[in-house]
């Protein structure tokens, strides 16, 4: 104790300095709005930046959930596009009550398995019959057509990809509505290109022209498929074979939208009755 007192009296100048300095500093901070504001501001800024760092990390960890929500949001927004309205695609009277006449609706699904390098490629998605996926539905990717639903289990579905030798999709040229079938795999196994067959010889096409769905099949009309990359390929007698660069990058496909064509069943039955007659 004595030593402590000796120590304090020896260094009393410094100790007293700290006491008086601290008390005047407290007075300064507490009684002057400017100094108080800048004190609190600087500390708040620091605190906020720490919060932001943690939040950035959290956001990164939540990317999967955010992706899922964005994908389903996309599906919902696709339902709002006027093109789903049957009255517009068949030229009948426009119905103001669009909800009850919605022809196309979309299910969003995640790709869980995918191949692009086989002769016949399939895609597996994480939605099945429980979610309303049915065999024969069209499947769209973020950039365009992907394929057709082939098999359905309760929780999964397989898609016959566009990159499949059996897949034929009705497609047309954007400029003149001439339509043909889009096929893949006839001597060409590049996942970026497909062939548009059965375009009549007199149709003039340009490189770079858009190829879209025709609306005669599972897909709504006007969905992009790709662009013309080569025009002069002679196919059979009076038809052109057009090489099309596909809009969808199948190798990086992660989310797809399954198209539910509400009047598809009806169309199928009535078309079938033509054949039986």
């Amino acid at each position: 104790m004595r030593n402590l007192w000796i120590y304090i009296s020896k260094h009393n100048a410094v100790i007293l300095f700290f006491i008086f300095f601290a008390s005047s500093f407290i007075l300064l901070i507490n009684n002057n709005s400017f100094q108080r504001a800048s004190t609190w501001n600087s500390s708040n800024e620091w605190v906020a930046s720490q919060y932001q760092k943690v939040q950035n990390l959290k956001d990164y960890l939540r990317l999967r959930a955010i992706n899922d929500s964005l994908a389903s949001e996309n599906g919902r927004l696709l339902n709002l596009i006027p093109q789903r309205d049957s009255s517009e695609t068949n030229g009948l009277t426009k119905v103001l009550d669009t909800v009850s006449h919605q022809q196309y609706s979309y299910y969003t699904a995640k790709v869980v398995n995918n191949s692009v390098r086989q002769k016949n490629n399939y895609i597996t998605i994480d939605k099945g019959s429980l979610q309303g996926i049915k065999k024969g539905m069209g499947v769209l990717g973020p950039n365009g057509v992907v394929g057709i639903v082939l098999n359905v289990s309760p929780k999964f579905a397989t898609i016959q990809s566009l990159l499949h030798s059996e897949t034929r999709i009705s497609a047309s040229l954007a400029s003149n509505q001439a339509f043909g079938s889009l096929v893949w795999g006839a001597g060409n196994f590049n996942s970026s290109y497909a062939i548009l067959q059965d375009i009549p010889n007199h149709i003039k096409t340009k490189v770079g022209e858009k190829v879209i769905t025709s609306g005669y099949s599972l897909f709504p009309a006007g969905i992009p498929i790709g662009t013309v990359s080569e025009t002069g390929m002679k196919g059979g007698d009076n038809f052109l074979n057009i090489k099309v660069k596909l809009a969808t990058n199948f190798a990086t496909l992660s989310y797809v939208h399954v198209v539910n064509n509400a009047s598809g069943k009806e169309q199928e039955t009535i078309e079938l009755s033509n054949k039986t007659e």
């Binding site: 300095f21 005047s24 007075l27 300064l28 002057n32």
Partner: peptide
């Protein structure tokens, strides 16, 4: 309040 006191300390 406190500013000159601090400087004087």
């Amino acid at each position: 309040l406190g500013l000159h006191a601090l400087a004087c300390t």
